Deep mutational scan, measured.
Amino acid sequence: MSIQHFRVALIPFFAAFCLPVFAHPETLVKVKDAEDQLGARVGYIELDLNSGKILESFRPEERFPMMSTFKVLLCGAVLSRVDAGQEQLGRRIHYSQNDLVEYSPVTEKHLTDGMTVRELCSAAITMSDNTAANLLLTTIGGPKELTAFLHNMGDHVTRLDRWEPELNEAIPNDERDTTMPAAMATTLRKLLTGELLTLASRQQLIDWMEADKVAGPLLRSALPAGWFIADKSGAGERGSRGIIAALGPDGKPSRIVVIYTTGSQATMDERNRQIAEIGASLIKHW
């Protein structure tokens, strides 16, 4: 067993022997301040990774656009098919120029040779490549099948209805392509620590998230040296922004954090800054 596999296998073990965790309302004060600064709703939840206990939450059962955070769930569904012998990570998928959609920095470079399922998941999570996500959605049967996968996990809230990039439209009061912070946090925890996926697939999923290259201005910008984070960000229309993450000190994750916002007129930089400040408060009061 590799060191990384050992780390993920012992996530519940280490967490069980940690000192009790206590909620700190100071972080919620910052979440509410972010709402004021952005002029928009902000949803927040913080779960203990081992027990699933909610440590703090704000608007945990209000719907927010998922945006690209759905790509972690998508690759979880792909990995479940791999575990069941219905898919192979090494299978190569070929596609054409007509398949390319807006923001496809990886797939646009491989029109000639195609990409493997493993490479597509890596591109979808680490670079948020939209064509990679659409190609992977095709392998599982489309958005409705991802929703069905989530329902089978016990998540009857999260739903995907459309493809990239239309799913980022974020129309107010439109339930399409949305989740709730509580539902997303619980589902992410199941994917990373539950028995739904094999140990190898859980490790692969967290490795992809740990290698995320496009979430630097968010929670990662607030992390002290030595902290662990595996995350996936999302951005959408109407001032929408979000991030889902597993993080913790001492090089291992111990909490799940989900943050979503929508309806702001603020710039992307300002949305990023507010999420980073929430992260800084979380870490300060850990």
Score class of each variant (00 low, 15 high):
Asn168Glu: 09
Gln88Phe: 03
Gln274Ser: 08
Val31Asp: 14
Asp250Ala: 05
Ala245Met: 07
Ile243Ala: 13
Met209Tyr: 00
Met184Ala: 09
Val31His: 00
Asn168Ser: 06
Gly154Cys: 15
Ile93Thr: 15
Arg118Glu: 14
Val29Thr: 07
Ile125Asp: 15
Pro253Ala: 12
Thr179Lys: 12
Ile278Cys: 15
Leu28Phe: 05
Arg220Asp: 15
Ala215Thr: 14
Phe228Asp: 02
Thr126Lys: 11
Ala280Phe: 01
Leu47Met: 04
Thr261Ala: 04
Glu26Trp: 00
Glu145Val: 06
Pro105Cys: 12
Asp113Arg: 04
Ile278Thr: 11
Ala266Trp: 15
Ser128Phe: 09
Arg162His: 14
Glu87Phe: 13
Asp269Val: 09
Asn152Arg: 09
Thr138Tyr: 01
Thr179Leu: 11
Ser68Gly: 09
Thr179Ile: 15
Val117Lys: 07
Thr186Met: 09
Arg220Pro: 08
Asp113Lys: 07
Arg220Val: 06
Leu192Asp: 01
Lys284Asp: 03
Leu192Gln: 04
Leu89Arg: 02
Glu270Thr: 15
Leu282Arg: 05
Ala211Met: 15
Ile278Lys: 14
Ser104Gln: 07
Ser233Phe: 00
Asp129Arg: 14
Ala123Cys: 00
Lys30Leu: 14
Glu237Asn: 15
Arg63Gly: 04
Val257Ile: 03
Trp208Tyr: 03
Leu137Thr: 06
Asn134Pro: 04
Phe70Val: 01
Leu136Gln: 03
Met153Gly: 13
Ser122Lys: 15
Arg273Ser: 13
Thr147Val: 15
Thr139Gln: 12
Pro224Asp: 04
Asp48Thr: 01
Arg59Gly: 01
Glu102Lys: 14
Glu270Cys: 10
Gly234Gln: 01
Leu89Thr: 03
Leu38Pro: 08
Asn272Pro: 11
Asn50His: 09
Thr178Ser: 07
Asn130Gly: 02
Arg92His: 12
Asp48Arg: 00
Pro65Met: 15
Ile259Ser: 04
Asn168Leu: 09
Val29Leu: 09
Ala132Ser: 14
Thr178Tyr: 10
Val117Ile: 02
Val78Lys: 13
Leu205Phe: 07
Asn168Arg: 12
Arg241Lys: 14
Ala230Gly: 11
Ser51Met: 05
Met153Ala: 10
Pro143Leu: 04
Val82Cys: 06
Lys144Asp: 05
Arg255Met: 06
Trp208Asn: 04
Gly114Ile: 14
Met180Asn: 00
Gly226Leu: 05
Asp231Thr: 08
Ala185Arg: 03
Gly90Glu: 13
Leu196Cys: 14
Ala170Ile: 01
Gly90Val: 04
Asp231His: 11
Lys232Glu: 14
Phe149Val: 10
Glu102Val: 05
Ile243Arg: 07
Lys71Gly: 03
Thr193Ala: 06
Glu164His: 12
Asp113Ser: 10
Phe64Trp: 10
Gly279Lys: 15
Ala211Ser: 08
Val214Trp: 00
Leu191Arg: 07
Thr193Trp: 05
Lys71Phe: 02
Ala133Asp: 03
Asp212Val: 08
Thr27Asn: 08
Val29Met: 15
Arg189Trp: 12
Asn168Gln: 09
Ala280Met: 02
Met66Tyr: 05
Ser51Tyr: 09
Leu38Lys: 06
Asn168Met: 06
His285Phe: 14
Leu55Tyr: 05
Val82Trp: 10
Leu100Tyr: 13
Ala280Asn: 00
Ser57Thr: 10
Leu196Met: 05
Gly251Val: 01
Ser68Thr: 01
Glu62Leu: 11
Asn152Met: 13
Glu195Arg: 09
Gln88Arg: 11
Glu237Ser: 12
Lys190Phe: 14
Ala124Pro: 04
Cys121His: 13
Leu79Thr: 11
Leu192Ser: 06
Asp174Tyr: 05
Leu282Ile: 05
Asp33Arg: 03
Ala148Glu: 07
Val101Pro: 04
Leu79His: 10
His110Glu: 15
His24Ser: 05
Glu26Lys: 03
Leu49Cys: 15
Ile171Val: 02
His94Asp: 13
Glu166Asn: 04
Pro60Leu: 02
Arg238Lys: 07
Leu135Arg: 05
Thr27Pro: 08
Lys284Cys: 05
Pro224Glu: 02
Phe70Leu: 01
Arg202Gln: 08
Tyr103Asp: 01
Pro65Ala: 10
Ser240Tyr: 14
Ile125Gly: 13
Asn272Gly: 03
Lys32Trp: 02
Arg241Cys: 04
Val106Phe: 11
Ala222Cys: 14
Ser233Leu: 03
Thr116Pro: 02
Leu79Trp: 03
Met209His: 11
Tyr44Gln: 13
Asp83Met: 08
Thr126Asn: 06
Ala124Arg: 08
Asp113Met: 13
Arg271His: 03
Ala133Gln: 08
Thr107Ser: 02
Met268Arg: 12
Ala246Ser: 12
Arg238Trp: 06
Ala211Lys: 00
Pro60Lys: 08
Glu195Cys: 00
Ser128Cys: 05
Ile206Ala: 14
Met115Gln: 00
Ser96Ile: 03
Arg220Asn: 15
Gln203Asp: 15
Glu277Ala: 14
Ala225Ser: 01
Lys71Ser: 06
Val72Ala: 05
Val42Lys: 00
Thr179Ala: 10
Met180Ser: 01
Pro165Ser: 07
Ile171Gln: 00
Gln97Arg: 05
Asn98Leu: 05
Glu46Gly: 03
His285Arg: 04
Asp36Thr: 07
Arg255Thr: 06
Gly76Thr: 06
Leu196Val: 09
Glu35Leu: 01
Asn98Glu: 00
Trp163Asn: 03
Asp212Phe: 00
Gln203Thr: 09
Val72Cys: 04
Leu192Thr: 06
Ile206Tyr: 13
Gly141Lys: 02
Asn130Trp: 02
Leu282Ala: 07
Gly52Ile: 01
Ile283Val: 15
Pro181Ser: 08
Ala246Cys: 05
Asp231Arg: 06
Ile243Cys: 13
Met115Leu: 00
Thr126Pro: 04
Leu111Cys: 05
Pro60Glu: 07
Ala34Glu: 14
Arg255Ala: 02
Glu169Met: 08
His110Asp: 14
Gln97Val: 11
Tyr103Gly: 02
Gln88Thr: 14
Ala222Tyr: 15
Lys32Asp: 01
Thr193Pro: 04
